[in-house]
């Protein structure tokens, strides 16, 4: 199964963008480039936060352009603000499983399990404020995994972390990507991130990705 961007174009303020990309399940693609080069625009288009003015985005040969963000086969780990400060860790994840918070006992068990997987066992009842930046991103990652979406977008998810934490997170991310056979698109300005995930590198030049 593959994610295909075919001549996807958009015009923002004075800048125009055009993206072409093919990414298969099990592959990690890294989009490199300076800020303002259109990396976030690309993820916004795939995530459904921005409507393209031309071209098509498809998954498994079906267009996803007309789908709202939550109905797309896509989940995103943002650079920050992945969690709601007033909800407990568990509830933050639960909201990703069911947006109406209707979860079965099995679902709650899975949340405990996935917290275990990302190295935060029995921390589910705490508030995000009690967690470090790295731990908060682990919760975000845990939620991405439970949402069972085949495509994962990583929007500079480790940009704000210190070197050691960043390394740990990259190892963890690599492990879950392989385990779940995900199709991953990562935006970063750090080529070390791309190397750690053994990613296929791309660069956006003058708003164009080929």
């Amino acid at each position: 199964m593959s994610l295909i961007l075919d001549e996807v174009s958009v015009q923002l303020a004075e800048k125009s963008f055009k993206f072409n990309l093919k990414a298969d399940s099990g592959e990690v693609h890294a989009i490199l480039g300076k800020s303002g080069s259109g990396k976030s625009t690309l993820l916004n288009l795939i995530g459904g936060f921005l409507k393209p003015s031309g071209g098509d985005i498809s998954w498994h040969n079906q267009s996803i352009v007309s789908l709202p963000p939550d109905k797309r086969p896509v989940t995103t780990l943002f650079q920050s603000h992945n969690l709601f400060d007033h909800l407990s860790i568990k509830n933050n994840i639960a909201l990703g499983v069911s947006p109406t918070m209707k979860l079965s006992p099995q679902d709650w068990n899975k949340i405990e399990q996935v917290l275990d997987d990302v190295g935060l066992p029995s921390r589910g009842d705490e508030k995000p404020g009690k967690l470090s930046g790295g731990e908060q991103q682990r919760v975000g990652l845990a939620r991405c995994l439970l949402r069972k979406k085949p495509v994962m977008l990583l929007d500079e998810p480790y940009g704000a972390l210190d070197e050691t934490t960043r390394h740990d997170m990259l190892v963890l991310t690599k492990a879950v990507i392989d385990k779940h056979n995900l199709c991953v698109l990562m935006v970063t300005h750090n080529s070390d991130d791309a190397d750690a995930l053994e990613a296929i590198g791309h660069t956006i030049v003058d708003g164009v990705l080929n």
Binding site: G47, D70, L95
Partner: peptide, 17 residues
Amino acid sequence: RLVQSLGVRGWSRFIWL
């Protein structure tokens, strides 16, 4: 963007967020 991607809307959004 997070709210949109999780699809939390309507009454659920009001109560939980």
